[in-house]
Write a protein that binds this DNA or RNA. Structure first.
Lengths: 225, 225
DNA sequence: TTCTAAATGATAGTATTACTATCTCATAGA
DNA sequence: TCTATGAGATAGTAATACTATCATTTAGAA
């Protein structure tokens, strides 16, 4: 049995759907690689075009600009994460167990469990850690939000918030706690690797410590009393 | 009695010290205003030069590039925050009380208490909320870190971590919790205003709710037991 | 088989950005 | 009066972020 996960993306994310053509799939695959290698700031459509052997104009047929492409990549990541969470918490009764699994999925490197073809999920995870917040920290957040570009993030947050409420229906900040877990899973990872003084994980570079920190944070917060 | 706070900045942050000349002070004051108005992405030295009636080359005498200027601004903000925290927690014995004050200082708009001359602290706070993480989310974090450009942030984090340890000497993640408070004070504010679905603060736009959330988060985490 | 539309390639051009270089001028202090 | 410093003026360059146009391939419909 060979299964492939296909994620349906919001039409406003692109000018032409990159999933439906060869060049489109190349753009996604290789933009992720290039951003991973040199960072989003130094990433240009010209470099990408040279990298995959096409022209700048060719890329512009798919994406308005590089920021839209980043939003696309992030939206894909969030959708994929939500799917993985559904998959890995399915049939689990205990909401605390569910939440543990979620924290684990957010904070540890991807064990490439669910195949998605033209995307390297491990590299993608690294990109989102380093570039993820740039997706919405812009002057046009609100327009982008109206265009539903962040829906996958909001859905993910809502889903985690739901599980938090299952753990403790009286907890007052399920969504804020959910967004805190998501952001901190990424930020503490970034800090651990690049600004270790901002963490207690030292030079160990061990993601399990981040999981332990987040579990402590979350479970003491939602504990009843 | 007229007092003015002067913050000593790391020499590597600039090419020429902007505090020591008229143009320099104008650059700081007006760059903050311009970034506030249109965001860091659309901010250029050319626009800044026109805005303050000088030339592009003039600005480049003070700062290597606009990112260095942003780091300068952020470093100033972090130093200033640490000073305010010292000021407002001074002579308080109860560490829990101290921590409450710190959360309040981080998460609510500035009551312009300590004058600093050529900087508008309220606008500065807004900028850091929206642009703060761009300061270190780059490919050159590590070099910048070696140049001690983030020392004010690390000092701030260490100071808050200290207070956390005073509250509970056995708490295992004082620095990670400190960086979490700092980042979330900013992010939850940004989310509240621009992506409210990621928070539980709805359309109220009331910073006190962020304070309540952070207090709940922090105090349940460091509670002994 | 022919026709057509969609995808891609090839080339060119523009405005803006991100700088660097150089020369002049004012002025404050020694 | 000399001189260093700050700052204005001007010029120029490489890269970035696009837009426009035209030609070619190819797969499916008529």
């Amino acid at each position: 049995m060979e299964l492939q996960l296909q994620i349906k993306m919001n039409e406003k994310l692109f000018l032409r759907n990159p999933e439906l053509s060869e060049l489109g799939k190349k753009i996604i695959l290789h933009s992720i690689q290039l951003i991973y290698k040199s960072g989003f700031e130094s990433f240009t459509f010209k470099k990408l075009a040279e990298y995959i052997g096409t022209t700048e104009a060719g890329i512009y047929r798919y994406f308005e600009n590089k920021h839209r492409l980043l939003i696309y990549i992030a939206a894909w990541y969030w959708s994929w994460l939500e799917y993985r969470i559904s998959f890995h918490t399915n049939n689990i009764k205990d909401p605390l167990r569910k939440l543990k699994n979620i924290i684990h999925l957010l904070a540890t490197p991807v064990e490439d469990d669910i195949k998605t073809g033209h995307v390297n999920e491990n590299i993608l995870h690294e990109i989102i850690i380093a570039e993820g917040s740039k997706v919405y920290l812009t002057r046009h957040v609100s327009e982008d939000n109206s265009d539903q570009l962040f829906k996958p993030y909001k859905d993910l947050c809502a889903k985690i918030g739901q599980v938090i409420l299952e753990c403790n229906p009286k907890y007052k900040y399920p969504k804020s706690l959910a967004s805190t877990i998501i952001e901190m899973a990424h930020f503490q990872n970034f800090f651990m690797h690049h600004l270790p003084a901002l963490t207690d994980f030292g030079k160990h570079k061990d993601e399990k410590k981040i999981v332990a920190f987040l579990e402590d944070l979350v479970f003491s917060s939602i504990k009843k009393g």
